[in-house]
Nucleic acid binder design. Structure first.
Lengths: 254, 254
DNA sequence: CGTAGCTTTGAAGATTTTCAACCTTAGTGG
DNA sequence: CCACTAAGGTTGAAAATCTTCAAAGCTACG
């Protein structure tokens, strides 16, 4: 074979075209040379195992992280010691955006399964953004998108019944898997009922009951972590009925 | 008096030092000449009257808005036609950040009372940010802060009882008024019980009952829109008990 | 002064949580 | 190879919380 360093550099480039680059660049299209400059600052670490921390609340902020494969949850601890899940992060999605503000992570992040991560040193990213206006624009869009998605989630939590929340959660996963080229109707949940409940503001039993009910109603087929969506239109109808607007479906991604 | 244009320019400058500038610049401190360059792109419009729209969902995005005085609510409409409040915006706070993503506002914004607004043309702001690295940094921080705050709100909605939600809402207002130099314990609510309920995911009657209960327990004094916090520690204790961490209090503002 | 719009309050009803038991699966060690 | 255990998941019944419906009170404004 050829020189090891060359191989490994190429590997990194290819790997990162799967994650940070598509997240940060594809939507607007940087010039190829700018993509290379961005590529050059990306680091790739050894994969996380299930349960490994990516970062902990309070740690100082150095990097943004992009999930390459696997899944990560973010969570905070309440005073009783148990955790509150604030987000699930699938391949192509970014973590750490809330920490730019004051230089400290406000939540912890832990791998839900074996997970590969790209690391983007934020100070380098800022420097690059200054020099590449379209990258700056992409960064603004990335942050803005996160704000929009969280607002959707707030609207969901602020309004919905347990049924709508679970339906919406499943549709969200479906959309996100689909966008990444996975099946939109057949996937594995990497999180427990407990974690889903925590995220949706429901007791784990309520989540379990709804999965069972959706299965009885021929909307889903659920077997532990394995979910198949049999009637996606009926799921959609649930959230359209009482919940807010069409934002939860694919929004026009400029 | 002197030339009218000069006066009006000065007025704008002074006015905007109260809103966009403190939001965007004070935390990090731009150089004075950069502040002037930012200042130069800020527009100031005639005040909004209660009920006036600042923007509507679906409209194309041109500006960020900073509340100078008054209050604005943002909301979406659900399919049944009634509105879901997604945020309240007090003096010094920014609106429109979620619209950067795809160039369209995802929610509507309406004045809750007579309200003065500064307008920041986003394309100009982007240009400036490219040329002023510390402004770019401020923009990233601003967006990040919004993300962090929304995550807090999600955690609140995802976990809490009605009591915790109302307590947390009051503490949030208190903090925000305080930061702007108003009383932290004596203020007027510019929104109705209905709107508070919509925001917190509660029926308006539940909000009303909790206000009454807090009053009975000597925690508050409520008289329609006028709220006085008599025992802020007890309010804090409510959210510390079951809800997530200390993030809801003043976070270290770097 | 009267009306409209908010707010409060009560009581019944629905939804969700909690508690408890039991089941299933995967991993462990005899 | 099988039994055991621990962790996660399901299910049922009672209890708590919140919503809904209904009525009445209060304020502000024309």
């Amino acid at each position: 074979m050829t020189d090891k360093n060359v191989i490994s550099l190429d590997k990194i480039k290819v790997a990162c075209r799967d994650c940070s680059l598509s997240t940060l660049c594809l939507p607007m299209g940087l010039r190829p040379e700018d993509v290379d400059r961005l590529d050059a600052i990306v680091k790739r670490n050894r994969p996380l195992q299930r349960g490994d921390h990516l970062f902990r609340a309070g740690e100082s902020f150095r990097n943004l992280y992009v999930v390459k494969t696997g899944a990560v949850k973010t969570f905070t601890q309440n005073n009783d010691g148990d955790e509150q899940v604030v987000g699930f992060h699938l391949p192509g999605e970014v973590l750490g955006l809330d920490a730019i503000q004051d230089g400290h992570h406000g939540c912890s992040a832990r791998a839900l399964e074996t997970t590969a991560i790209c690391e983007l040193p934020f100070d380098r990213l800022e420097d690059l953004s200054t020099n590449i206006p379209s990258l700056q624009h992409q960064m603004f869009r990335l942050l803005s998108k996160e704000i929009g998605q969280e607002a959707e989630m707030m609207a969901l939590l602020g309004r919905s019944t347990a049924e709508e929340r679970v339906a919406s959660f499943l549709l969200s996963l479906s959309e996100r898997f689909k966008r990444r080229g996975f099946s939109a109707t057949d996937f594995f949940l990497s999180m427990s009922r407990q974690e889903i409940g925590s995220y949706l503001g429901l007791a784990l039993e309520t989540v379990s009951r709804l999965f069972t009910r959706f299965q009885d109603e021929q909307i889903l087929k659920v077997e532990r972590k394995h979910v198949q969506i049999l009637d996606i239109d009926r799921l959609r109808a649930m959230i359209n009925h009482n919940s807010n607007c069409e934002q939860h479906q694919a929004r026009p991604s400029s």
